[in-house]
Amino acid sequence: MTTILTVQNIAKTYNMRDGIVYALNDVSFAIKKGDFVSITGPSGSGKTTLLLALSGLIRPTSGQIIFEGKHLENASDKELAGFRKKHVGFVMQNFSLIPYMTAIQNVMVPLSLNGHVSAEQQVLSSAVLELVGLENRKNHFPRELSAGQQQRVAIARALVNKPSIIFADEPTGNLDPALSTEIMEFLQKINKELNITIMMVTHSPQAANYGNAKIMLEDGKLSR
């Protein structure tokens, strides 16, 4: 398998009143195309900071992040936005749906960014909502959906642009065990059937077991 993401000696520091705090410290690893990577560690270990850096939402203080041969660490805001738009899907613990848009409208938002006209947006969004089993709920607002259904809308939105990689931050954090299993099995299915790389931050050992690779962080450093 080819390497999709390479991380070399990245650090992320924050200047606090009592000195510099290392959220990430000299972290290096490589991820292959089609991997399902679980990132685990105690609270404050730097898991989410790592996810943010890898997905181009923040820049590391030092080190290199190379995605499919392109360096992200020095990319401009516009380039990072372009990278996220084209290659990345996000699944967040809080679902991150826009409350005044229906399920299908939420899924259409990334498509509009990539230049699809309204009719195409409708067709593609409907198809992906059918894939996650929500075709009959496409005109419902998030408040009218259960937590599991909202997370599936978020997954549909992440998938609709056919991303190379999905970053998931505690995707089961707000779900009960049954729904958590359902969502994790669905992410695993996406990973295997669509060959989409997934990097998932989780506190849950059960969720972490769905991955084929694990990164464990402690105090901003790789512990394993």
Binding site: L57, K78, A81, K86, L97, L113
Partner: peptide
């Protein structure tokens, strides 16, 4: 703020 964050996360540039 949260909603704007979502749009930025998805790939909307500042402009």
């Amino acid at each position: 703020k949260r909603e704007i964050g979502i749009l930025r996360m998805i790939g909307y540039p500042k402009s």
